[in-house]
Structures are given as C-alpha cells and as structure tokens.
Design a protein around this nucleic acid. Structure first.
Lengths: 181, 181
DNA sequence: ATTAACTTTCAGTAATTTCAGAAACTAAAT
DNA sequence: ATTTAGTTTCTGAAATTACTGAAAGTTAAT
C-alpha cells in the first residue's frame, strides 16, 4: 500500500519537523504516518511506506513508545504486532508537551533548587543567585500552571481556550467579586 | 575573570540543555553566562570564560541576537562591544517561546491549511484529512491562546498564574453569569 | 592613508547523530 | 527440537552539525 501524494507530503513534512518536535526525522515520519493511516500498521508496512530499514523502524517504535505516543495491537490469528496512535490528537499533544517539560524544564529546576539552598559566598555569586532565583520562579510557575491545565475537564479546558481575549475580563471580574468578600 | 565553581556548574548545565531549548551547547552556555554575570561582557571575555574560539563566540552572538535574547552596549571611550541579556528573565522566556512557536508550529499550520483546501479524493485521503483537521484545530487553538496571553498586562498575567486551581471555578462562574443574560 | 583594535566570515576538521543491514534473539507452529 | 515468522540489538558507514583558527573585513584614531 503506497501513500497518496498528498498524504506523502504530509508525512515528509512531519519528518522535517521531527527534530524540532524533540525526536528525529524518521520518528517524525513514523508518527505522522500512523496518525493519518486509518488502520494499525505492522513494522514492515511502516518500513516499506517510508523506505527505511526494518531496524530503524524497530528503534523508532521503541522511542515512540517511550513517549507514549503509540500502542501495540494484535489481530487474532495473526502473530504480527500492529501499531496505532495512542489516543486522539489532543492526547498525543499533551504527551509530547509533558515529555518535553520533563526533558527541558525539570532538570534545570532541580539544579536550581540545589543551588539556591547554598549560601552565596561573594558579590558575584549573590547576583548569580538572584538571577537563578528568577529563573526558578518562572519555571515553577510554568510547571504549576501546566499541571493545573491538565487537571481541568476537557469541557472546562475547551471553554478556557475559546475564551480568548475574554480572559482578561474574566480575571478582572473575579477580582471584583472576591474583593467584596 | 574566572567563574566560581557554582556559577560554572550552572553555565555548563545551560550548555547541556542548550540543544533541548532550541539552540546548541555553546549558545546555551553563552546565554547562561550572560544571565548570571552582572556586568556586560565582551566577546573575548566570553570566549575566555568558556574556553571556546573567538569565531564561535561571534557566531553565537549572531544567533542569540536573532532570538533577540541579547543586546549590545557600548562604554564611552571603549571600542569594544559589550553584550548583555535583552530584558529580564520573563522577557527572555517569552522570546524563546515565540521563536519556537515560529519554528515548530507555524510551518505545520501553513501546510495543513493548504492541504485542507483541497478536496480529498478517496477513502484514505478522507480519513487523513480528518486527522489533519484535528491537528490544525489544536495548533490554531494553541496559537490563538498564546497570543492572548501575550496581550495581557503583566499584572493580569500574574493574577492568572497565581489563580492556579481556582481557574476551574472562575470558568464555571463566568459561565453562570453569562448564561443569565 | 596607515595603523591598531576589534569583529565577522569561512574552509576545513572534529564530534555527534542517524541509519542500514547483518546478526542475535524470541516464541509459535509443526 | 526444528522451522518459521517475527522482533531487537548492534556495528560501522554516511550525513549532519558544531567548532577552530586563520584570513578578510570594519571602523576609529592618528
């Protein structure tokens, strides 16, 4: 089964974007391919569709599983493993976001925490520590906020997103109401 | 002027994280270094502090300027260029965020827009197009939302962030109020 | 218009990352 | 216990990316 031209273009685009999204070209392609393909695919089908080696697909699968972006399925009476996206687009985006937070923010947060426990021992370290404190604040805020968003129900989240510029008004509103109490 | 051990550790950490944040090791180090150093630095000071070549620093500066993360300063009677972070930590994070959106989201958004204009011509393309539509929605929402956040005043933003789990309640609240009208 | 102080560019090299294909492994069916 | 259908791991080659150091470029002072 060969890809239609339009679908092929999309898959290749996912490849180009792959490294920007946190993985590599092949893995980007695999991810795009599985998303637009209705039926689950075997590793060999993936390798053929993308003209890459079977070994490479195997490594890619492992990686995509570590991101929790794909799941394995079995068809009764068939020994092959079939792969499909794990969840809908929104779920997948969430996973990517979470995983990237883990890789891009958490390590720094923990370094900064450690550092801020130590007393600075001179002028230069005092300034540095002040700056690190700022970064720490920022990252904590982002982290807290993102976990709050995860906690909202899909409907709430949807309302929030749709709110758009209204968000400013709502904040002010909330402010007025609670100031009274 | 050589870095204290603690500061050195931080700068090296920024290097390790560099590629995850969208640039490379050296540029990560440069960025970290400039952030924790109180006084603006010359290119040579940067090269010495990090033990990298002068040419490399020059390229790094260009890159950091393209991200709008640093600015040049001059000291009267001194021909050297002095570099310092452009803005506070929040500003910088914003710039990184914006720039990454440009690289990681915008190209895909435009590809998807184009694709969705075409009529799908068979079963397979219909499904693919449905999925692409989902991705398109998601990315549009993220884009819109992030530009809304940029539009808020710092105080509003701060309130919003502090709101934390309260956000759910506020949404419901807003809902009730406007349903009456 | 020369020199001196500084910056940028760039060609070649070094380091890293990605990949194919072969070999090793696993487990179901016979 | 062999065969067969399948998956994973690993090595070295290829491609990409990052870096150095030297050469070229710029600008201000003399």
């Amino acid at each position: 089964m060969t890809l239609s031209e339009k679908n092929f273009t999309f898959v290749m685009h996912c490849g180009e974007m792959g490294s920007r999204w946190g993985f590599n070209r092949t893995i980007g392609q695999m991810c795009g391919l599985l998303i637009i393909t209705k039926n689950p695919m075997t590793a060999n089908e993936i390798a053929d569709s993308l003209s890459i080696s079977r070994g490479n697909v195997s490594m890619g699968i492992k990686e995509l599983q570590s991101w929790q972006l794909i799941k394995v399925q079995h068809i009764p009476g068939d020994r092959k493993e079939y792969y499909a996206p794990a969840g809908d687009i929104w779920d997948m985006a969430n996973r990517v976001f979470e995983e990237r937070k883990k890789r891009e923010i958490d390590p720094t947060l923990s370094l900064l925490r450690d550092n801020l426990l130590d007393e600075a021992s001179n002028e230069e370290e005092i300034y540095a520590q002040k700056q690190m404190g700022e970064i720490h604040n920022l990252l904590e805020t982002v982290t807290k906020w993102s976990s709050e968003l995860q906690r909202l129900t899909p409907e709430q989240l949807n309302k929030l997103m749709k709110l758009g510029s209204g968000i400013g008004k709502v904040i002010d509103l909330k402010d007025k109401i609670f100031k009274k109490e």
